[in-house]
Amino acid sequence: TTLHFDLDGKKLQYTGVSEEIARLVEELKRRGVDLKEIVRILEELLK
Results as ranks from 00 to 15, higher is better:
R23P: 01
E43F: 04
K29C: 06
L3M: 05
R30G: 13
K47R: 13
E26G: 12
L28F: 13
V25G: 01
E43M: 05
K11N: 08
E20K: 09
L3V: 07
V25E: 00
E43C: 02
R23K: 11
I38M: 04
G32Y: 05
K29V: 15
V17M: 03
Q13Y: 11
S18K: 07
E20Y: 09
S18W: 02
K11D: 09
E19Q: 13
L35F: 06
R30P: 01
L28M: 14
D8E: 10
K47I: 10
K47Q: 12
R40I: 07
G16P: 02
E20T: 10
Y14L: 03
G9M: 02
S18D: 06
L42W: 00
I38P: 00
Y14P: 00
L46R: 03
K47D: 07
V39M: 05
R31L: 08
A22R: 09
F5W: 02
E20Q: 11
V17D: 01
I41K: 06
T2S: 07
L28Y: 15
D34M: 12
F5M: 04
H4W: 12
L45P: 02
K36Y: 15
K36L: 11
V25N: 01
L28K: 04
R23V: 11
V25T: 04
V39W: 03
E26M: 15
Y14D: 00
E44T: 12
A22P: 01
L12E: 03
T2N: 09
L24T: 15
E44C: 09
K29A: 14
R40Q: 11
T2D: 14
L24H: 15
L7T: 02
E27V: 14
L28C: 02
V17A: 03
I38N: 00
V33I: 12
E20L: 05
D34S: 11
L3I: 12
F5Y: 02
A22T: 08
K47E: 08
R40M: 12
L42Q: 00
H4G: 05
V33S: 05
V39N: 02
E27D: 14
Q13I: 14
R40V: 09
E44V: 11
I21F: 07
V39P: 00
L12R: 04
R31M: 08
K11S: 12
L42H: 00
L24M: 13
G32M: 11
K47V: 12
S18N: 10
L24A: 14
S18Q: 05
E19H: 14
E20N: 05
S18L: 03
E43V: 06
L42K: 00
F5L: 05
E44N: 09
E19L: 09
R40A: 10
L24I: 14
K10G: 06
I21H: 12
F5A: 01
K29L: 12
V39D: 00
I21A: 09
I41E: 07
H4A: 08
